[in-house]
Amino acid sequence: MRLFLLLRFLILGLVLAGCADPTYAPVRPDTGGLGDIQGVIVVTNRARTGDGFYGSGRSDVMSYQAVDVSIPRDRAMGSLPVSIRNAKPGQHFLISGSRGLAGRDGFRTDLRRSLSALPGDERDLLIFVHGYNNSYSDGIYRTAQLMHDFDVKGLALHYSWPSAAHPLGYSHDRDSLLFARDGLEAMLRDVAGTGARNVVLVGHSLGAMLVMETLRQMDIRDPGLPDRLLNGVVLISPDIDVDLFRAQAHRIRTLPEPFAIFTSRKDRALQLSSRVNGKSERLGSLSQAEELADLNVTVVDVTAFSTTMAQSHFTAGSSPGLIALLSQGRALDQTFATPNRATRAGLPGVVVTVRNATQVILSPGLLRN
Rank of each mutant, 00 (worst) to 15 (best):
R104N: 11
L235N: 03
N198D: 11
S273M: 07
A192P: 00
F4D: 07
A47F: 01
K279Q: 14
H130I: 03
R268V: 12
M77A: 14
S59A: 15
I95W: 01
Q248P: 00
I11F: 10
I37T: 10
S116V: 04
S274V: 05
R108Y: 09
E185P: 03
L366A: 05
I361G: 00
G57P: 06
L292M: 15
R330F: 11
L5R: 12
G195M: 11
D68S: 10
L366Q: 15
S205R: 02
L235P: 06
Y136N: 03
L101P: 08
T263F: 10
L326W: 13
A20D: 14
L188Y: 06
S264F: 10
D294I: 03
N369K: 11
V61Y: 05
Y64W: 11
Y159V: 02
M77L: 15
E213P: 01
V297R: 14
A331L: 02
D124H: 15
G55V: 02
L270D: 07
D124K: 11
M218D: 01
N133Q: 07
L215D: 06
R48T: 12
V69E: 04
R75E: 05
G52V: 07
A310G: 07
L230G: 05
N296H: 12
N340P: 11
L283R: 05
L322N: 04
I361D: 06
S205Y: 05
G18D: 05
I127C: 05
G131T: 10
G50A: 13
D149T: 01
A310N: 07
K266C: 06
L34N: 04
